[in-house]
Design a protein around this nucleic acid. Structure first.
Lengths: 352, 352
DNA sequence: AACTAATCTGTAATCGATTACGTTAATATA
DNA sequence: TATATTAACGTAATCGATTACAGATTAGTT
């Protein structure tokens, strides 16, 4: 006995001496079946502990009720929160979520995508890896008519819907906040410009500087990754500049943390001498002794909306797939690493 | 055109004017098929861009190459890391991971479990919710001969393999460490005793106290949850005691963090006056200005090993399923919140 | 009564791959 | 030469559910 024999509609049909077709129709609430039969079948099915074989159904219908998610890593607060949002929105509709990691390698991304397509998935959610340069692999999904939705990190592709953050606005808001706190020489720790999101944050930063007539010092833009050390090194380099910054807007929280650590080591007071703003609102930012101001990307909402876009796309059984672009607004959580005004009102604190 | 018509073995068989059976066998490297035919089929399949329909195969074989994971929440560092471990171990074997959340509600847990069984999953990994009292639902999986593996949080059930942390040892180690740092009145912030893990941590704590002949003050054991506030409140209550603790061993990092915040608010010096040890080695613990000593549960390894246990169980195609119990050793990361000795060697720091 | 319409149910094909069993033709053996 | 053996492939059933089409029964209409 490899598997306990499951009861099928044939078992029910034999027991009731009716055809399997009738059983199937009865279970699917087909109105052509008399109420009497329908109820009898339902009752018998329950008695026999019948469970529909979703594989058979999937084979017949071509729909599996599974969707795939491809992210660089799943144990990153941002991505796991997006996945949670997707899962919670889709679960009540009977969908299950299959997760895959690309490890930031386009090679893996392609492999996972093909594997998912091969698994007869109903849709794919994806955040491209840092090393993804084009979307040839994505076009394969479209060619097979499988809905694909980008979230957060996308590469503009015709026919692909996306749910992303307004990173330009986020960069602008963060910079504007620093300006309003009185900072005039704002440095920027950028991420890999290959990714749209970092490019947009950078451009938002530039736009804010220009709007307020601040000069933009190219020396004050440092490329970092999501490691703490890169933030530390960035401060080292920044403080070698002729003109020292009086604020740092980091495109990532880990680099921001590294920067703060290095600033403290140099006994530079935060936020009095230098204000720092991070990005992503990672859980740790608010737990710090010096809580870090950070830009929230509402990841769970992002997942939820991506799921809704997917549901619309499969509901409207259209030949033409509509391209939907959702742009979410970021939200700045001002904390003590940049909140000079907050600090004043909370002057009863033991700080300074 | 709803779906682009996939090419099937029938398309290949027609093109080559051979039977579909031969095509199937050729593709499966069946030695009964001549090398010539095998190569011809392989070549043609590639030319026609044939992709095996895994649904059909799954229906026939009864195996889907999908496994399910049920966790309370996926966007918790610990759980998402375990999932990552499972995913990385299973992926090379062709398995995909389907994730489900129980939200700490046994009701959801049951629902998700049934849904997974119904989806014809090949195996299930599960960490029980806080509200799970028995394993009747789990027995249903066993009855269907679906391998089920507990990780971290389990409820002893015959026939179910598990991969867990040695929580007793962890509790013992944490407490012993505090004793070795010179602490004599060690409080414990416990988790929900309904879960074995918290019970074991507590018992390890007691055992260490006894070993070193320290008296155990029941007032010093406070029930907390994984919220920061509960850690704060715990300190409030502890400092209302006749006898104030000189150390806190928390069964969770968030409660430890809350405790530290409250201690600081009371100007109690850490680790000089009170040492604090947390549990889980959450990412934030090492980023704090006062890094928190914490017990690492090696979650990714836990996932990896759980996956290996699963693979063994499906490989050995035995009628009798072997019950395997793996217990992992915890690892204590000593940081400044309890590292008095460390502090001394690093006395050049700006801290007292 | 005769016929149409409506209601309910059965037959069989289908989704795509696998496989037990059978067949053919070629080769080996007596 | 007659028979046994083997290699190579085909036929058809199977996994379990769905559904187009057809058939049977009953009710309704003139």
């Amino acid at each position: 006995m490899n598997r306990k024999e499951k009861v099928t509609i044939y078992d029910i049909s034999k027991k009731l001496d009716i055809s399997a077709a009738t059983v199937s129709r009865a279970l699917n609430q087909n109105p052509k079946i008399s109420k009497k039969t329908r109820e009898l079948v339902a009752k018998t099915a329950k008695e026999m502990n019948y469970k529909q074989n979703r594989l058979a159904q999937a084979l017949k219908s071509g729909r599996t009720n599974n969707v795939g998610v491809i992210v660089p890593y799943i144990n990153r607060s941002f991505f796991s929160s997006v996945i949670r949002g997707i899962e919670e929105e889709l679960n009540p509709h009977g969908y299950h979520v299959i997760i895959c990691q690309s490890h930031e390698e386009v090679k893996n991304e392609i492999k996972q995508l093909n594997a998912l397509l091969n698994t007869q998935i109903d849709g794919i959610f994806m955040s491209v890896s840092k090393t993804t340069q084009n979307t040839d692999h994505v076009k394969k999904a479209l060619a097979e008519n499988t809905p694909l939705i980008f979230f957060d990190r996308k590469i503009e592709t015709p026919g692909v819907s996306s749910v992303v953050l307004d990173d330009f606005k986020a960069g602008f808001m963060a910079t504007e906040h620093l300006i309003q706190e009185g900072c005039k020489k704002i440095a920027h720790l950028s991420g890999d410009i290959n990714l749209e999101i970092y490019k947009n944050r950078y451009e938002g930063y530039i736009a804010a500087l220009e709007k307020y007539g601040l000069n933009h010092n190219p020396e004050h833009v440092i490329l970092t990754n999501s490691k703490i050390e890169s933030g530390q090194q960035a401060v080292v380099r920044l403080w070698e500049c002729e003109e020292k910054p009086d604020a740092i807007f980091s495109a990532g929280d880990y680099a921001a943390l590294g920067a703060i650590q290095e600033l403290k080591r140099r006994n530079i007071k935060i936020p009095e001498e230098v204000c720092v703003v991070g990005f992503s609102n990672e859980p740790f930012t608010k737990y710090m002794e010096l809580p870090i101001t950070s830009m929230d990307q509402t990841p769970q909402l992002m997942g939820k909306i991506a799921a809704q876009v997917f549901l619309e796309q499969v509901k409207e059984n259209l030949a033409v797939s509509i391209e939907k672009k959702v742009v979410l607004s970021p939200e700045l959580f001002v904390r003590e690493s940049s909140g000079r005004s907050i600090l004043k009102t909370a002057a009863n604190k033991a700080l300074l």
